[in-house]
Design a protein around this nucleic acid. Sequence first.
DNA 1: TGAATATATAAGTAAATTGTTATATAGTTA
DNA 2: TAACTATATAACAATTTACTTATATATTCA
Lengths: 115, 115
Amino acid sequence: MDTQLKIDIGKSAKILKVLGDKTRLTMLKLIEEQTCCVCEFVEIFQMSQPSISQHVRKLRDVDLIKEERKGQWVFYSLNHNSEWYEFLLPILEQLPNQQDKIEELEKKGTRITCC
Amino acid sequence: MDTQLKIDIGKSAKILKVLGDKTRLTMLKLIEEQTCCVCEFVEIFQMSQPSISQHVRKLRDVDLIKEERKGQWVFYSLNHNSEWYEFLLPILEQLPNQQDKIEELEKKGTRITCC
DNA sequence: TGAATATATAAGTAAATTGTTATATAGTTA
DNA sequence: TAACTATATAACAATTTACTTATATATTCA
C-alpha cells in the first residue's frame, strides 16, 4: 500500500506540465523564499505584464500559489496548504537558488517592499 | 553554495515538460520496476503504435530512458546513468504504483517476457 | 527468400500553448 | 473626482504538441 492517498497520476502530469515552463518554474523557486508581486516579475523576466499575469494565473489555477493583495499590489507566494505542496517541494529543492534576481532588483531599487 | 552543480533551471523545465503528460509519466513509473517494450505500451495505453513510439522518443531524446533490443522487440527502462536520474527519482517516488497494468497484461497473456 | 511482426519516422491536421495588443478593473493619490 | 499605477482579461497570431495515416526499416520464421 502506498503511503500517499488519492494522488492521481493524471493530475500529477497536469501539475508537472504547469511546472514545465522556465518562467513559471523560476517564479516558484523565487517565491519559495519570499513573496513577489507582478511588477517585480515583469522586471525580473523582462516580459510584458499580461504575459506574466497569464503565467501567474496558471500557477494559481492549480493552487500552487496564493495571492495576497496589499494596497495596489498583489503579492504571490507558495501555497503551503496546497494539496500539491509536498509533491512540489522535492522538485524545488533540486533547483538552483534564484535569489540573485531579487538582489538585482534591490540594487536597481525596483524591489517592492510594501507595508 | 548549492550541493548540485550545473543543474540549469531551463533544462529542468524542459525535463518537467516531458514529464507533464499522463502517458509519458505513467510509462516512466511503469519502467521504474521492469522493462517494457513498445507493443506492451500499445496494449496498456490503448493508443496507436506510432503515437506510443513518439512518446517514447521524447523520453529518449532527453535521455531519461534507455533502450535494449532483444530480438524483434525493443525494451525500454529507466536510464539510471542519466544526468537527470536523481532529479526524476523523488518525483516518481510520489506517484502511485502502476504495476496493476503489468498484471493485467499477464492475465491477458500479452506480456512479453523474452530471453 | 518471402511473409509476418515490431518499431520508427514522415507528413498532415486539430488542438493547445504562449506570446502580443487592447481594454477593463481595482486601488492610490493629488 | 480625475489622473495614475498595478493587475487581469479578452481577442488574436504564431508556434508547439499530440494525434492520425502511410510508409520505411529491422528482425524472425517458414
